[in-house]
Amino acid sequence: MGYFLQVVIDAVSLGSLFALVSLSIGLIFGIMRLINFAQGDFVTIGAYSLLAPAAGAAPVLFLGALPWPLMIVLVLAVVVVLALVTERVAFRPLRNAEPATLLVSSFAVSYFLQNLVIVLYTSRPKALSLGTEISTVVDIFGLRIASIQLLTIVVTITLLVAISAFLRFTPLGLQMRASAENFRMARLLGVRANRVIAGAFAIAGFLGGVVALLLTAQTGVIDVRAGATLAVFGFFATVIGGMGSLVGAALGGFLVGAVSAVLQTILPADVRPFRDAVVFAAVIVVLLVRPRGIIASKSKERV
């Protein structure tokens, strides 16, 4: 029983990170049909903003040297600004392009950001510890849970609640939901495209910053490709959960995390390394059998 609960905790905390990423991707896709692969690089750059640009292996702290409330605010700010700039420079001119073209352009943006990091910081992974309090282990009902796992789960649930409240109760949130439903109609009714899209990117940036902090706290290592890997899973999670449906996107994230964690436990050791292939194959199956994902959005013409 204890072992089972342990797996559940692992699954939920891994799924939380995926859910935050897939929610960001789903939010933007719903409005402008853009699969934003650069979401992963928002995470990477958020993590790197803790460090000062330097070539050496020893990390030189930048934002990471600040007291933690300030550090959190500034990291989030950096990523939000980055997301907004990306939208303005790269994606706004392409707004009317085909989804496949947009996908390709987001690859280009992602490639750019990754190599920007390499130019500034070199491609060497860097070790960084965000304090010792979060690496402790908590004992709950006989379960030993890393406090960072707990923190990840709590933060994710809080954010999911906050975002759904935002989408439900604020005017901008309402406009975003309307745009996700039918962007053209929403615009005809006076919704400002630029505002809505910038808002979506700001939220995506904010979530990216949160993921950056959680990921760094969890792994203690900052790597150029860490964010991109996360984006791949988050993106496939969005497809599985349902592109364009925010609930579906978040659910897909949790599901992919859960499937990964469960497969990790039940597969025999020599097949275990192939577990990611199962997730990727599931994507193809979902696309074929249920192209709109597990939670289909109401408006037609999705993927």
Partner: peptide
């Protein structure tokens, strides 16, 4: 698959 779904499928 076609369009975007094909791109995603081939990426998978």
């Amino acid at each position: 698959l076609s369009g975007l779904a094909a791109a995603i499928g081939t990426l998978a």
